[in-house]
């Protein structure tokens, strides 16, 4: 689904990535972890063609990004949905128009069909139909995330990129959002790439993950595989009561 090989990223003299490689399979929820400044967001931006890596190869859905043409790139962009950290909803459009905008631009659907689709997306993310008429500035933080997720789903993507979906949400809202992601994966069969440092999400929804530290991937795999790593960052990141509990539950029984 996604293959990242030996990616090097430099901004001026600052090295962000020095040989990052990872591999994401179809249908999984894949987490990208790492401390602030470890280049998680930069890596995601490289995957969605907002930035180009200094060196290395990235292939999304079998298409290598280094040699991609304009038409191919446009086609690829319609196969994924991106949820930005702060929603990035268009502030001059209503929520419904935000969801509709790509459908209007890229499909030949009738008005009525588009309307039905917008409503179905609002239902999927658990928002009331009346929310569609509101503007982004009128929504709470949690609702903005849901609305932005509905927009990301508008083109029925195969691939979903989520940049810190639970940051800024209260614990209950965050767990509900996690549940929503799992539900949508079951319903739509999408592959989900999620940047997070929410340990709850890491333990509950993520199937496999990679940990970025020291400018490269220091551990990749399921949570059990990650926990065997002895890298200082992994140890520090996971060394808390939560992990202790998990370890006890899963290894001493």
């Amino acid at each position: 689904m996604i293959r990242v090989e030996g990616v090097v990223t430099r901004f001026g003299s600052r090295v962000i990535h020095d040989g990052v490689s990872l591999h994401i399979k179809r249908g999984e929820i894949y987490g990208i972890l790492g401390e602030s400044g470890s280049g998680k967001s930069v890596l995601m931006k490289e995957m969605i063609m907002l930035l180009a890596p200094t060196a290395g190869r990235i292939a999304i859905l079998g298409t290598p990004l280094e040699t991609i043409g304009v038409t191919e790139a446009q086609a690829l962009r319609r196969k994924w949905g991106v949820l930005f950290q702060f929603g990035a909803l268009f502030s001059s459009l209503t929520i419904a128009q935000n969801i509709e905008v790509q459908l209007k631009e890229y499909t030949n659907l009738t008005r009525k069909m588009r309307q039905a689709l917008v409503h179905s997306k609002l239902t999927m993310v658990g928002l009331d139909a009346s929310v569609g008429l509101l503007y982004p500035s009128q929504l709470s933080g949690g609702m903005v995330k849901r609305a932005a997720l509905a927009r990301a789903l508008a083109m029925e993507p195969e691939l979903l990129f989520l940049d810190e979906p639970t940051s800024g949400l209260d614990p209950i809202g965050a767990r509900n959002f996690d549940a929503l992601i799992v539900e949508l994966r079951a319903l739509l069969g999408v592959t989900v790439v999620v940047i997070t440092h929410d340990l709850d999400s890491v333990f509950t929804i993520v199937d496999r993950m990679s940990v970025l530290a020291d400018k490269r991937v220091v551990a990749e795999g399921s949570i059990d595989e990650i926990l065997t790593s002895t890298h200082p960052f992994v140890e520090e990141f996971f060394k808390n009561e939560y992990t202790q509990k998990y370890r006890e539950e899963h290894h001493h029984v």
Partner: peptide, 13 residues
């Protein structure tokens, strides 16, 4: 999930 969705209410103000 979808058959109960209200698809008729307007999406434009």
């Amino acid at each position: 999930l979808l058959h109960q969705t209200d698809t008729t209410s307007p999406i434009e103000p």
